[in-house]
Amino acid sequence: MDCDGQNGKDVVIDCCINDLHYGSFKAVRDTHIPIKKQKITAFIGPSGCGKSTVLRCLNRMNDIVRGFRFSGHVHFGGRDIYHPSIDAVAVRRHIGMVFQQPNPFAMSIYNNVAFGLRLNRYKGSVAEKVEEALKRAALWNEVSDKLQKSGLSLSGGQQQRLCIARAIATDPKVLLMDEPCSALDPISTRKIEELMLELKTHYTIAIVTHNLQQAQRVADETGFLYVDTSEGGRTGYLVEFGDSKQIFEDPQQQHTKDYIGGAFS
């Protein structure tokens, strides 16, 4: 597939997947998604179509899966992060990730947020950074008096915001979020959506979501992935990508129309 189109200067991550295999299973093909600076890009699509897989490609999280193979490229600031000369660990320090299930460490709230700073041997005031990250993640008011309590003692929604605070404490350039609200109630979901819109002024965000209204509410651009069963397997691919408004109000492809129509009609 052609990924060499001029993407302009505002593309932070240019993701171009030709083929992606887990062992002999071909999970994703022909997916080209440019992620623009200080925009929110959403991935939508049915379960198993490879949204998480594509997202995890963007910071090389798939490297820890045995049998993972990938052909294509992911350009981050003009460099291919899959080039042999690139250190995956360094990539992940610039491209942070928030997972579907809240996954705080079994340590205090403070240490959870400070974790990334310690990894990077941060020289400045850790306490200040922790406070700033917790405030940005809209969690400070709820935890400021119990920073030494275990991160695991928080509620699910608070844990997820703690994970967001942990991810943004090190000021990554890009934040990847894999269904960050799927375990949360509507109020926490709202808080996190507001948070994303707020974070957009500093960071670039890519989010996977099953909630189409959520994609519509927060995303500037949206990519729709679908499963292709024609070759016998279940291979995901990008059907359509564009401005969220256009994807939701005037989809060009039949698959997109069916998927979005099913949800909104």
């Binding site: 996954n103 460490f105 991810a167 090190t170």
Partner: peptide, 9 residues
């Protein structure tokens, strides 16, 4: 937890 740490770099 392991994934969280790896994801942080």
């Amino acid at each position: 937890m392991k994934e969280a740490a790896i994801g942080m770099g």
